[in-house]
Design a protein around this nucleic acid. Structure first.
Length: 247
DNA sequence: GCCAACGTTGGC
DNA sequence: GCCAACGTTGGC
């Protein structure tokens, strides 16, 4: 129920919040058009997750009331991948761009991951991304898409302030302050990868793994390609990290 | 710039 | 609740 913690902000968080405001990180995560409360299955706290996001109605029909039961049946992810667009692009007159380098130059190399407007991604942000979890930083919608670095969660899900700002491209007029619809986490840079691991490379591996059942077989990057915040299994995580060493 | 994939909307 | 039309993502 209660949206994640709204703990008293630490100094770090304060800095993060104030400076991050105008930054529009993350890959454009879907429909910029707000609206559409009702049917949307989970404006509520029902975590619809893993899998069948394409069928929101499924969860409606089975009317998940016991979210704990749900949670216990799904894998608890500890690793994630978030997409961000490193190249400049304009959305409603506002420049959207956020690269790994931008994170590097942020105060404390920390930023809030705002602007995500997709329910499945929202649920991950709000419910499942926990302090200390590892996150791949992925560059999307650019010349060479791929994983460029690693960051980690330093603040768990809390309301995304951009939903309340009419001037923000991700403003959502249907969201109320006392019942926020969209959430974000804070991430902090850990390190760049020793080498850039391109989507092309991952895709090739993925195809092989589909054929002969390897660790990247079911990676969300391919099975749920358009999600901008996605879970990564520990097996996938370590497999990809190990690729760093193949120069 | 194209377009496949897929999420959302809205009529029925 | 179904499903066609529409809109967006994002790789190519």
């Amino acid at each position: 129920m209660a949206p994640k913690r709204s703990r008293t902000a630490t100094a770090v968080e304060e800095i993060t919040r104030s400076t991050a405001t105008r930054k529009a990180k993350k890959a454009r995560t879907n429909y910029s058009k707000p609206e559409a409360p009702k049917v949307v299955t989970n404006t509520s706290d029902t975590p619809i997750l893993n899998g069948s996001a394409s069928k929101p109605n499924q969860s409606t029909s089975k009317s998940v009331k016991n979210s704990q039961a749900e949670i216990s049946t799904k894998p608890a992810y500890t690793c994630w991948l978030v997409k961000s667009e490193p190249d400049s692009r304009f959305e409603n007159g506002v420049e959207m761009k956020f690269s790994f380098d931008d994170l590097k130059s942020s105060p404390n190399q920390t930023e809030c991951w705002d602007g995500v407007r997709n329910y499945q991604a929202r649920n991950f942000l709000r419910d499942q991304m926990k302090l200390g979890h590892n996150v791949f930083f992925y560059h999307s919608n650019c010349k060479e898409p791929g994983i460029i670095g690693i960051c980690k969660i330093v603040k768990e899900g809390y309301p995304d302030h951009t939903q309340f700002d009419p001037k923000d491209p991700h403003y959502d007029s249907s969201s109320q302050e006392n019942k926020p619809k969209w959430f974000m986490v804070d991430v902090q840079l850990v390190r760049p990868l020793k080498r850039f691991i391109s989507l092309a490379e991952l895709k090739k591996i993925h195809q092989e793994h589909v054929q002969r059942d390897g660790p990247l077989k079911k990676m969300s990057l391919f099975t749920r390609a358009r999600l901008s915040v996605q879970p990564v299994t520990e097996e996938e995580w370590s497999y990809i990290l190990q690729l760093e060493n193949n120069m």
